[in-house]
């Protein structure tokens, strides 16, 4: 009998892991956005002195992990597991950074849902008694994503209005079996839901049903109400996806509008920065959580947050073969109080 299981998709932790510290590093464009004051490091050149975008993305991840570990005042050898993933084929940004970091490594793929996927698994490992200290990390880079999924950078094409801008950035969180608030108290693991959208430039609409499904399931499993939260924030649904998710959640009888936002909307000023529908990428919810939200929790400006990173599980091959885009989302409750 799974003692910590709550309802059909949620886990409630007996010894909720503490988030000891976090780190966020972003690229120059993100560093000009509305959340610029919350990031730990803004790089001035989007290759960060490396000779390929992929190497730069690995470096972002390595440095974010190291910064998070050092601000937790522990050493790298104390880390029991590194849980990381990214968008690149065969998750090379993560495995190549793990090659450098030399920690026991579990590579994850959940597209842009990786931040909450890693926090979910990390929390379960700690509460299960399998680890004391875990680092959860993820990254994305505008230029690595463009060349893998879309067009060469210098190609003179027009981006549709529903398209999103992949965030250049990496975020890392150190979870611990002991320590102060904030804590991860619940996780709700989402199902893959495919509403049949085939347009790879409209990922918000493709992921919104998965996000709203996991949010509604979270309320059903835990008995929480939207008003129990100070903030409910999805990963990268952006402007269109957020509107849809809100509608879908309302159809199930929950009104989240007063506390609901999306990391893809928060990170850029879409009008000024010309990012169309908003930000996307693993790095989007990673830097918004590890930069902005974590600091708000620490300062008690927010006390209970539901973070739902959202992933579009497509590949260039599946898109070219005319497949629709399956979506996934995982929800994590981060709270300053233990009930």
């Amino acid at each position: 009998m799974a003692q910590k299981k709550l309802g059909s998709q949620t886990v409630s932790f007996q010894n909720p892991p503490s988030i000891l510290s976090t780190a966020s590093i972003v690229g120059p464009k993100e560093g000009e956005g509305p959340l610029k004051d919350y990031f730990d490091l803004i790089i001035q050149d989007d290759s960060w002195g490396e000779d390929s975008w992929e190497k730069c993305e690995s470096k972002l991840q390595i440095e974010a992990v190291r910064m998070a570990i050092s601000s937790a005042k522990i050493v790298e050898s104390q880390i029991d597991y590194l849980l990381a993933g990214d968008l690149l084929n065969q998750i090379i940004a993560s495995s190549f950074s793990a090659r450098q970091l030399q920690m026991p490594f579990l590579g994850l793929y959940g597209a842009c849902s990786t931040m909450t996927e890693s926090l979910s698994i990390g929390s379960m490992l700690i509460d299960g008694g399998y680890a004391d200290k875990i680092v959860c990390a993820t990254s994305s880079h505008f230029s690595t994503a463009e060349r893998q999924y879309r067009f060469p950078l210098e190609h003179g094409n027009q981006r549709p209005l529903t398209s999103q801008w992949t965030v250049t950035g990496a975020g890392a969180s150190v979870l611990s079996s002991s320590g102060g608030p904030p804590y991860i108290t619940h996780v709700t693991t989402g199902k893959v839901i495919d509403p049949g959208i085939k347009d790879a430039n409209n990922m918000g609409a493709a992921m919104a049903p998965a996000a709203s499904d996991v949010i509604v399931q979270h309320f059903k499993d835990t008995g929480f109400k939207p008003t129990d939260y100070d903030l409910i924030i999805t990963g990268d649904l952006a402007s269109l996806g957020k509107e849809i998710a809100e509608d879908l959640i309302a159809q199930e009888g929950y009104n989240v509008s007063s506390v609901y936002s999306d990391c893809g909307i928060e990170i850029f000023d879409n009008e000024k920065q010309d990012t169309h529908a908003g930000g996307s990428g693993c790095g989007c919810s990673a830097v918004v959580f590890n930069g902005y939200i974590f600091k708000q929790l620490k300062q008690k400006k927010l006390n209970k947050v539901l973070l739902i990173s959202t992933g579009a599980l497509l590949s260039p091959t599946s898109t070219q073969q005319g497949e629709s885009i399956p979506g996934i989302a995982h929800a994590v409750t981060i709270s300053n109080k233990l009930d």
Partner: peptide
């Protein structure tokens, strides 16, 4: 050229200059 293309769309894709851009851009990228 990508900045021109962003504004002009088909206006800078259809002429022969757009074709040159479509070849040079991936050559640089890869």
């Amino acid at each position: 050229y990508d900045k021109i293309g962003k504004k002009a769309g088909a206006g800078s894709i259809v002429p022969i200059t757009g074709f040159a851009n479509a070849i040079v851009a991936p050559a640089m990228e890869f």
